[in-house]
Design a protein around this nucleic acid. Structure first.
Lengths: 202, 202, 202, 202
DNA sequence: CATGAATGAGACTTCATTCAT
DNA sequence: TATGAATGAAGTCTCATTCAT
């Protein structure tokens, strides 16, 4: 039986509240009661919809990461140059941050960068993103568009690392934020990774 | 005040044990007693040398990060091309990981990537590294060796992000490890960031 | 007030399910939702028919115990020797177990042997059984069929204790079960208590 | 290393307090804080000495039950008639109750009669007592002192059931208590089980 | 310096009960 | 009658920190 509409709403309410609370206080530092309070629901209702505090974070991560993986897959099916593929991926991640910075903060800080806890749990999912990015690089190398002295795996890590670090810069207020900066970032990440920082003499 | 020799030893014993425990279990998941057990010292002795569990991690981070900052400063004083400076910095970080992967794992996972807790506490120190790297880029741009359409701050983040992500790859076993790989990584990071992934037509 | 037929059915359904759940998991360890699930009724319906979880057990006990008390009363009105009266009572209890071991398990484990909770609540009912058994012994002593150096109260406890312990043996799989064993048990209990374990010379 | 004296004292303090609390409120109904309060120690100290609330009860039971098993073994080694052996065993249990009625109440109510929880856990230990009693009966039958139409297992259950039910009678105030009653009980139990309730015609 | 027993606040989780539909 | 979402009190257990020796 499909969940009733009302039920879905409360469940969503709790998930959305959890994003705000996790972003503000961190997963380990917040209490389940903080989430309940933020969602304005009774304490016990959180446990009606989720087996544990962990499951809330798992749900948030998997929901969002699945969308990312689909987006990367979608990008790779297009017939566009590899640089544009990477631009589209970076763009998707940047836009995700622009659209919901708290959610992206939670996913990065509490999952993808948390090597000991959730990061390890969701490693297969996370790795899948790297694999798909590496596949794009691999094809670009076969087509002799990308140089082949950098292994695809390695290139994928560098690319993804640069993207995540830029988001981290925004999260930590180490880089200026704003619509202009978000658009620029997409270009700059790709310019840096694909074109390189060094001037090419004409 | 000079500490006695024996005292220094026990203190060091605890710090080294903490590295192993934090690396294995994570800061939040381990107990102070785990550290004491690992160090084979009495529980209470941990509190003789450190005010709190937090202070242990703070100490580990600050010790090591200070060395990194000094290394970057040292690199920047040399009269070598910017690419070589970045190579030296990447090399220093990679060698740090090779020399003590557990310590580097702790610093990355528990501090530099932990936006909500220690990451925020030590933000000034962390930022300092970015600033120094950005300064290198800035000078390279003024000397017209690096292109100037990528802001130095941004370039610094991309570079540091790539390095840290490679270490993360090793930590998570997403990238192969070994002496050869460590050496290659230094070159590949710099090739990617400075030279770019795209082939340059001759 | 006459309950509608459907209503009675659901109520019975819940009681029967509760027997199985209590027998399997124990009263304290099971949840009301376990009972509802076992009965295949909605959670809330349990509270439509019963004020509380306690009331379900109370109902089960009182229903069954009342039948036992009536049976003992009925036995005592017959004009048969005391040994046959005790045989009839032991037989009734053994047959109750044979007919519905789960219900008897619940009554013994959760009520008659639970000194702190339900046992205390239903003490008057439980005591009534002892009183009626003691009365049988008392009459037998007056008729000089039973020896009178064992007080009737005491004899009643010994008799009932032996019966309950045999049931406990079956519940715990400490004694073999089966139709033959059930029949034998009736005789053996009475032989032991009335005849004694010692051989009588002569 | 042996526990220090102070440590043993606090541990004992907690165990003794637990007996009083379990006897008064029942295992399921009491809180760990009740035990700590009763022992006048800090809440956490309970968990310093015991892994869980369960472990406290386990400890109490195993300590005492071991003593009972040893006593039965000891009795069986003596060269005395079986009736005297059973008298000694009943006497040991009755004296245990006289000496520490709260502890015996806890053991009977919360363990030996709790089929679903601790009773099941400690079944092997409990069964051991029945086995040893049955062995005494078995030998008495071989020596043609006891009749052999009642199986030893069965006789053991009847005997132990009678003893436990008498204790239950005291616990529930269904039987009068007092030094006289305790002494009488020993004799009456054995008279009932060995001699039988029926008068033997001379 | 060294020990580890002692403290107690605080977290997660459970679940009986209520209630709106 | 029937449903199951919603409530929140209460309990177990953890563990950082303190302290007496």
């Amino acid at each position: 039986m499909a969940r009733t509409q009302a039920a879905v709403d409360k469940r969503r309410l709790i998930l959305d509240a959890a994003v705000r609370v996790f972003a503000r206080q961190g997963f380990h530092t917040c209490r389940v009661s903080d989430i309940a309070d933020e969602a304005r629901v009774a304490y016990g209702l959180v446990y009606h919809y989720f087996k544990s505090k962990d499951e809330i974070l798992d749900t948030l991560f998997l929901e969002r990461w699945d969308i990312l993986l689909r987006a990367i897959t979608e990008v790779d099916t297009q017939e566009i140059p590899p640089r544009e593929k990477l631009y589209a991926i970076a763009g998707f991640i940047v836009d995700s941050y622009r659209h919901d910075p708290e959610l992206m903060k939670v996913i990065i800080v509490e999952v993808t960068r948390a090597a000991n806890t959730f990061g390890r749990t969701h490693l297969p999912q996370i790795r899948q993103a790297y694999i798909q990015i590496a596949a794009i690089v691999d094809r670009a190398q076969r087509e002799r568009i990308f140089r082949n002295d950098v292994t695809p795996d390695f290139a994928a890590m560098a690319f993804y690392g640069a993207v995540e670090q830029v988001l981290t810069g925004w999260i930590f207020s180490l880089l200026p934020v704003g619509d202009r900066e978000y658009e620029d970032a997409k270009t700059l990440i790709v310019e840096t990774i694909c074109g390189g920082l060094e001037r090419v003499e004409g």
